[in-house]
Nucleic acid binder design. Sequence first.
DNA 1: TTCGCACAAGAGCACTGCTCTCGTTGCGGT
DNA 2: ACCGCAACGAGAGCAGTGCTCTTGTGCGAA
Lengths: 232, 232
Amino acid sequence: MSTASATTTARERARRELTAEILSAARRQLAEVGAAALSVRAVARELGLASSAVYRYFATRDDLLTALIVEAYDSAGAAVEAAARPTAPGRTPRERFTAACTALRSWALEHPHEYALVHGSPVPGYRGDSRTTAAGSRAPLALLHVLADADPAPRRPVSAALAEQAARVTAAAGDGPAGRAAPEVVVAGARAWTALLGLVSSEVFGQLANTFDPADAFAAATVEALADDLGL
Amino acid sequence: MSTASATTTARERARRELTAEILSAARRQLAEVGAAALSVRAVARELGLASSAVYRYFATRDDLLTALIVEAYDSAGAAVEAAARPTAPGRTPRERFTAACTALRSWALEHPHEYALVHGSPVPGYRGDSRTTAAGSRAPLALLHVLADADPAPRRPVSAALAEQAARVTAAAGDGPAGRAAPEVVVAGARAWTALLGLVSSEVFGQLANTFDPADAFAAATVEALADDLGL
DNA sequence: TTCGCACAAGAGCACTGCTCTCGTTGCGGT
DNA sequence: ACCGCAACGAGAGCAGTGCTCTTGTGCGAA
């Protein structure tokens, strides 16, 4: 630890690179065959490695999946954050909200397996890793940020129990605008978030087949309804 | 096929019974270890059979899962239908609606693996079997039935494209009250259905951890909000 | 009674996650 | 400059999987 702090030894470089290559191959395979069929051996094969070598970098298949989950959360979160950003000063909160919702939907349609990985059924016995929860908060927090900026008139009072849970959210949100949102706004935002997840999940998982299948109109109308309901 | 039409031969009986036993064992295993870990061999082991024998009754593991999917859809659908039924003549549509929503949530919490099977990520390459879609329509159709009975004033006009898709739904719903629902009502109902799925999925899949985790209050408030939004 | 077909069992194939052992090689401390 | 350790990749191997094929057996229709 003495001289190695500044210099990066060749081994460290090689480790980082190979880790990235494994992740990249796993990402490719995830996009192709899905999480259920992702196999450590196939990843190793694609890289010309022995399967046992991969286990030096990811102790278990679930660890590899967890890394992919974090990546997916971050990718989706970045997309939503970018769409929610007030690019122009005059951009209304409603525009930011609908853009963020649409961004999540688009991301999910472009990365269905990644979406299923993070918002579908938890794979075996789920993990509540702190990395995943942090990364998973980005998108809903971006939405809450928009709501806090708009500070809409709360349309629906919340019970004391609900307000306490909302306070937990604002406490975890830090001291930004999202951290100062009213409990009614937090609850309404959470409601909108779960509704959005339901909309996107239904479409991505094929539950809307034979009904609202090309779901663009349905999704757009639903997002508008959500914005109305939030008072944006 | 001559005399066998009336009498049930011993073979047929045995086949039906063993099929039921296999399904029952599979159901038990699904509830315990989840769909991903459900194995034909373990089912056979539990029944004291060779694994190859099971394949005489379900040609493939996916066929077994499909049967479980149909069972789960029917179970959930029956629970929702029962809750949505106008048990007393004076029961308001709003009561029926909230009861149906709560019934779905309760069913999902009692059968998380079954819920994940039908509303989580589709397992490998999905199947759009006609049996599953029919069974899967029961719960949302029960909700639509309640809405059609209430015939609320449509709060939100729908575009022509959306109305056409709604017509597809009413056409498939047959000639009951649900089949005569206005397009605006059908779309609003579909919106409520996806929102309900998002709420229940978020809770069952653990997405609400650290925020609205004992989710009874949040769920109840969300269902009330949905009922309000529907004009019930 | 006889023939045929459905049946259960078992071996076997290709695959999986994961572990263990082996020879090698890079790297830090003396 | 050297030595020893730890990290490394390869390969074999274990237990498990879905699924197939063959083999023998007993029920049931003709």
